[in-house]
């Protein structure tokens, strides 16, 4: 097993997922199966090969600096689960 259970827990924490014990067990097991399969990439010699992040070579996409319309505040905040005027409300941080 590439990933022991504690590491599965660590990954879930990094990913901000509160998993049940059953989910953690199942996902960790399944991740290990998938990662074992991915071992096959180690057979490929990639020394000196540049990684691809985009299939097409796109340079900076620029446009004319002209002011355009944008969403109204009410529209932009229309889906907020909790708000107060122009602010998104979240549980107390400190």
């Amino acid at each position: 097993m590439k990933i022991p259970l504690q590491e599965g827990e660590y990954i879930a924490r990094l990913a901000r997922l509160k998993l049940t014990e059953d989910e953690l067990l199942l996902f960790t097991k399944q991740l290990n199966t998938v990662l074992d399969y991915m071992e096959k990439l180690n057979k490929v010699d990639t020394s000196g090969i540049k990684p691809t992040s985009h299939a097409l070579h796109i340079k900076n996409a620029l446009r004319e600096d002209i002011v355009e319309g944008s969403l109204k505040k009410e529209e932009a905040m229309g889906n907020a689960p909790q708000k107060d005027g122009n602010f998104f409300l979240v549980p107390k941080v400190i």
Partner: peptide, 20 residues
């Protein structure tokens, strides 16, 4: 709030891929 929201909102395949 983050961790519970995501665990309640996402299905198993999405959670698996986020973990991966």
């Amino acid at each position: 709030m983050y961790t519970m929201t995501r665990a309640q909102g996402f299905g198993p395949e999405v959670m698996r891929r986020i973990m991966l």
